[in-house]
Amino acid sequence: MESIITTQALTKQYGSKPVVRDLALKVPPGSIYGFLGPNGAGKSTTMKMLLGLIKPTAGSIFILGKPMLEENRLEILKNTGSLIESPSYYGHLSARENLQIICTLKNVLETGIDDVLRIVRLEKQQDKKVKNYSLGMKQRLGLAAALLGHPRLLLLDEPTNGLDPSGIQEMRELICSLPGKYGMTVLVSSHLLSEIDQMATHVGIIDRGVLIFQNDLASLHHHSRARIRLRTTDDGQAFRLLKKARLPVAASKDGSGLFLHSVEDSCVLRCGHLLTDQKIGILRLEEMQMSLEEIFLNLTGKQASL
């Protein structure tokens, strides 16, 4: 199936400093593609190149099956909505009036305004001046503007930035509903793993301008190494016993138990027999996966949220 977004060797350099290097994105149709990376990794620069706001130093971009070139940029953007950094608006005008201006600029019918206001749940505040909106309402208005004309592709750059927990939840629910209800493909950037984990179907991880992982979310989770967490009536004695038996065991750093670095049935069974034979009681035995934060740390060598 043809990708909605494809980039080949996409590169952006400012002077001698590379910001994005040889990027090869593949965004499947109907997906929520989480574009993940620390602050300063090159996410916003990439998204601006995809929209033609910044000219690449090298490489090519294909959106909706067409190359992003100066001569067909407007044609591509007619089927693309975006919310990059913070939303723009006229504070002295109402939400409806702001959206009417956007309709004129995008050359789309104003009949879609009621629909996008309903999608972002602003229909009851549509006549209120935007300068009196909360940050979350302004973000939703920005999303409504991006949705005008029902684009096939939506690009959202850190859409939950600055929102309170309830605003984050609202924005997340809105984004998750778009592919199923309206057939849109969404590219959403974030530096927060927890956000991407709750929204995305596919993930691309960028670090220092380089794409270091790209696949579906399930494949990212498969990178996690499963292990068995074990608590006993005598963890110290259990550790020495299992170590002597050459089982892959380690003590947890916080002293809360042991980790058996294998989930093979034979290994777990042998561990149980050894402990039982020495009359060491097993209080807890549970399989644990490496968290997304730990996977990210392994891939990038830095903290997951900076």
Rank of each mutant, 00 (worst) to 15 (best):
L178D: 12
T201Y: 06
P179M: 12
G204K: 00
H202Q: 09
L193H: 07
I196C: 12
A200Y: 02
H191W: 05
Q198Y: 00
L192F: 05
S190D: 09
V186Q: 11
M184W: 00
V188D: 14
T185Y: 08
L178T: 05
H202Y: 08
E195M: 08
I205W: 00
L178H: 07
G183S: 10
T201G: 13
K181P: 00
L193G: 11
P179D: 10
A200M: 08
L178A: 10
M199H: 07
K181M: 12
G180S: 15
M184S: 13
L192W: 00
G183P: 07
T185V: 10
I206L: 10
V186R: 05
P179A: 09
L187M: 15
P179V: 08
Q198M: 14
I196E: 11
T185L: 12
S194G: 12
I205D: 06
G180R: 14
L192H: 07
P179T: 04
G180D: 15
A200S: 15
V188T: 07
T201D: 11
D197R: 03
L187T: 01
Y182S: 06
D197I: 00
G180N: 14
S194W: 00
V203G: 11
H202I: 08
V186E: 13
Q198C: 05
G204H: 02
A200F: 04
T201N: 07
S189L: 04
V188L: 12
V188H: 07
K181T: 10
D197Y: 00
S177F: 07
E195V: 04
S189Q: 03
V186D: 14
M184F: 04
M184T: 00
M199W: 06
V203C: 10
M184L: 13
G204E: 08
S177T: 05
M199S: 07
D197V: 01
G204W: 00
V203Y: 02
L193F: 05
S194A: 14
K181D: 15
S189A: 07
S177W: 05
D197M: 04
L193A: 10
V203F: 04
Y182K: 09
G183V: 09
S189W: 00
M199I: 12
S177D: 13
E195C: 11
S190M: 09
D197K: 06
G180K: 14
L178G: 12
